[in-house]
Amino acid sequence: MRILVTVKFVPDLQSQRSFTEGAVTRTGDDGTMNELDENAVEAALQLKEAAGEGEVYALTVGGDDAVAAVRKALQLGVDHAIHVSDAAIAGSDVFGTAKVIAAAVRKVHDEAPLDLVVTGMAALDGLTSMLPTALAVELDWSQLTLASGLTVEDGAATIVRHLPDAHETVSAPLPAVVSVTDEANKPPYPNFKLIMAARSKPVTTWALADLGIDPAAVGAGAARTVVVDASPRPPRENRVTVTDTGDAGTQLADFLLEKGLA
């Protein structure tokens, strides 16, 4: 079983997140691997273990600091790490990013065929959840997204997909792009042995030229959308907190009634 997992470098959820010139501020100080990508790494490792053989690759796209995302994936136990970095990629929209990732996937696939690309269900900075679909279309592979369960058998992958109106079981031939939800598995706590082993593992770095991508086809210039304004929302005003001394329930009710909310 050969699997590639895409991981994203995002600002830590607990940090002060912000925008710089229309893009999410991403720095090494408070950046980390997107938490939901841990589920993708874990799903890939479980499939490899079940198959009894295989290779798991982690791939990230981003500036110098983004290498932290694939280093984290190495610490979680993946075999190989790839970092695609090129100044021309900056400012790409989801379609540009998908183009870059697809080219990198094809490069790995051409060396020896991959069975799956596994991604997280969303990146916790943008939360659009569009990349897995865009990647499946770019690769012209099967799309199996939002999997809360995943099995691979006889050249096909089958997922369980929990949607608000129904639980679906969807099947498709390999190779496939699968996105897994945070219900799919519980990523284990960091393992000291794996963390130590990860230190000596190399990270392969590719630029756009290595992938045969025209720089004009990606980046800010090719983006179909542009952020024209970004500003912090003002804090809520006139906030009240009361400690219950026997009548807080009544105070709460009166607050709602006065505001016409009850």
Binding site: T225, V226, A230
Partner: peptide
Amino acid sequence: FAATWNVRTRIE
């Protein structure tokens, strides 16, 4: 960002 920022986006 957990509804802490407002963003305006233009579709080109």
